[in-house]
Amino acid sequence: MKKALPIIAAAVAGLLAPGVAHAETPPGCASAQQIGSTAYVKMGGQTAASVKQFAGCGTNWGYVFVWADWAAKYDLFHVTAAVTTDDGTNHGKVIGRVDQREVWSKATATIASCTRALGVVSLGEDGWSAYSSRRC
């Protein structure tokens, strides 16, 4: 059991440390890549989540990842991920379960449109949002 403790400690440290990379693969499309720049949902000056858009397999996805240090301070939050087109329509909108830190939108048939990923973090009636950069 003593050998397992350093491994567990390293795994926990990786989950809690901000900026630590983690796997980002949209459901059903291992070849998808991030397009555009990452946006950040801010709440009171603190970063709550990262928002990214991915493209691959003929579709787009929105992706939201709540940072561990923010999630440790708040509970009962909801995360929403979607892909937004220039006409303001949200495609593939998914609202995660309570306290779910990683949420993918559904795959959207918006690859031929100008799009941005939308991420929303909500606490009760309040919500904060961010859009990734626009890609055409």
Rank of each mutant, 00 (worst) to 15 (best):
86 D>R: 14
62 G>H: 04
120 V>Q: 00
22 H>F: 09
17 A>V: 13
59 T>V: 14
84 T>I: 15
86 D>Q: 14
15 L>I: 09
78 H>W: 05
84 T>E: 15
38 T>A: 12
51 V>Y: 02
49 A>L: 04
52 K>N: 13
45 G>N: 04
77 F>S: 04
107 A>H: 03
17 A>D: 12
131 Y>T: 05
58 G>W: 00
122 S>L: 08
8 I>R: 01
84 T>K: 12
86 D>L: 14
72 A>K: 13
34 Q>H: 01
129 S>M: 14
40 Y>M: 10
60 N>A: 03
122 S>A: 15
56 G>P: 05
31 S>P: 02
37 S>T: 10
114 C>Q: 08
91 H>R: 00
110 T>E: 03
42 K>N: 14
134 R>I: 09
3 K>S: 15
70 W>G: 09
131 Y>H: 06
97 R>K: 15
26 P>K: 00
14 G>E: 11
130 A>F: 02
128 W>D: 12
1 M>R: 03
126 D>Y: 03
79 V>K: 06
81 A>R: 01
73 K>Y: 09
10 A>Q: 13
135 R>T: 11
1 M>V: 07
130 A>V: 07
128 W>A: 11
48 A>D: 12
80 T>E: 06
53 Q>P: 03
101 R>T: 14
115 T>M: 08
94 V>N: 00
106 K>Y: 10
121 V>Y: 04
73 K>T: 14
127 G>Q: 12
53 Q>S: 05
103 V>I: 12
92 G>A: 09
21 A>D: 09
71 A>D: 12
99 D>W: 07
10 A>W: 06
25 T>Q: 05
15 L>A: 04
43 M>F: 07
9 A>D: 12
92 G>F: 06
74 Y>G: 11
18 P>A: 05
131 Y>G: 01
91 H>T: 04
35 I>G: 03
37 S>M: 08
57 C>A: 02
55 A>I: 11
25 T>E: 10
15 L>E: 12
47 T>K: 10
52 K>V: 06
125 E>C: 08
42 K>G: 06
47 T>S: 13
56 G>E: 10
81 A>C: 01
38 T>V: 13
104 W>T: 09
15 L>N: 07
14 G>K: 08
55 A>Q: 14
72 A>V: 14
82 A>G: 09
119 G>D: 07
45 G>V: 09
